[in-house]
Simulated scan of single mutants.
Amino acid sequence: MAITAFVPRRRRSMAKQAGREYHLVDRIGWLRAAVLGANDGILSTSSLVLGVAAAGGTRASVLIAALAALVAGAMSMAAGEYVSVSSQHDTEQADLARERAELAADFSGEQEELARIYRERGIDEATARIIARELMAKDALAAHARDELGITIANTARPIQAAFTSAATFTFGAAMPVLIAAIAPRAWLIPIEIAGSLLFLAVLGAIGAVTGGANVWRATARVTFWGALALAVTAGIGRLVGTVV
């Protein structure tokens, strides 16, 4: 039975365009950074707003803290993603350089190594040798990158894309609690901030699930639960500090 028989018909129809089949895994590179950035933007900024407000801060101090969190968070996300993904990129390039050298030094040995990988996956020896030979005749490095190192186009490191996506989505996510801090009545700021942030987090979880093909309810519940926990802890600490001070 074909593997596509286990994929919902709607997803199969959306995945094929102009004769090429697109997979949800192709979105991993930017989807992870986007979800992380937006989630962090909502949660960290709203948590800071709640902490300052619960400590008795004025609207001005709350709004200044929220704007500072937005700018600092966006820059931090961009820098952090760029550095971490660049490290992954450097590691990939080092592995590819070593593999390129091994191909130049012992092409036949590398061909046998690739055939062994296919045999371990269940392909008979004769077929494994044919596949290894033909794939290496076309692009030996790409064949080893994919099947030996696990490096593909879908999961290859893209530092600039990750940095820009994280910064942009963090800014978008953080703008929501900042807007609430600016327009909500001071007396109702804390409950409105909590309700709005949880709503934003739930929507983000649902969007991420739909985009990634995951279970919507599970993803929404997960991000809402951990968001509520973080907001409760922050508000509690802010209240405690405000009472002591």
Rank of each mutant, 00 (worst) to 15 (best):
L141N: 07
D139C: 03
L135N: 00
I28R: 14
A232R: 05
Y82S: 10
I117S: 02
S86W: 01
I64R: 05
L201R: 02
A235W: 06
R20D: 05
T127G: 06
A126L: 01
A219Y: 08
R158H: 15
P159N: 06
V216E: 01
W30G: 03
L198S: 07
G57E: 09
A54C: 14
E110L: 04
R119C: 14
E134H: 07
A104H: 05
R116G: 11
A157K: 14
A230L: 11
A142I: 11
A157L: 13
R158Q: 14
A143D: 03
D147T: 07
G238M: 15
A54F: 10
G196N: 07
A209F: 08
V178W: 03
R239L: 15
A18Q: 11
A219T: 14
I117Q: 01
L179C: 03
L231E: 03
D90L: 08
A168S: 10
I192N: 03
R239D: 12
V62K: 10
W30Q: 06
M77V: 03
E113M: 04
F172P: 10
F164A: 13
S47V: 13
D26L: 06
A78D: 04
M1W: 02
S87Y: 05
R129P: 05
A94M: 09
M14V: 12
A142L: 15
G51C: 11
V178Y: 00
R186D: 12
V244H: 03
A175D: 00
A228V: 09
R146E: 14
Y82P: 08
A55H: 12
W188D: 12
T45W: 04
V216A: 00
D139L: 04
E102I: 00
V35I: 15
R158I: 02
G57T: 05
F6Y: 13
A145W: 04
D124L: 02
A53M: 08
A175H: 00
G37F: 05
M75T: 01
A53E: 12
L149I: 09
R12S: 07
I151P: 05
E148K: 15
R27P: 03
T171D: 00
G238Y: 14
V62F: 14
R12C: 03
A235M: 05
M136V: 10
A184F: 08
L103S: 06
I183N: 11
A97I: 01
F225L: 15
A143Y: 04
R133I: 00
E148I: 09
D139G: 02
G173W: 03
D147P: 02
A33H: 13
A206H: 10
A235T: 04
D106Q: 09
E113P: 00
G196H: 06
G213T: 12
I180E: 09
I151Y: 07
R20F: 10
R27D: 14
A228D: 01
P159R: 08
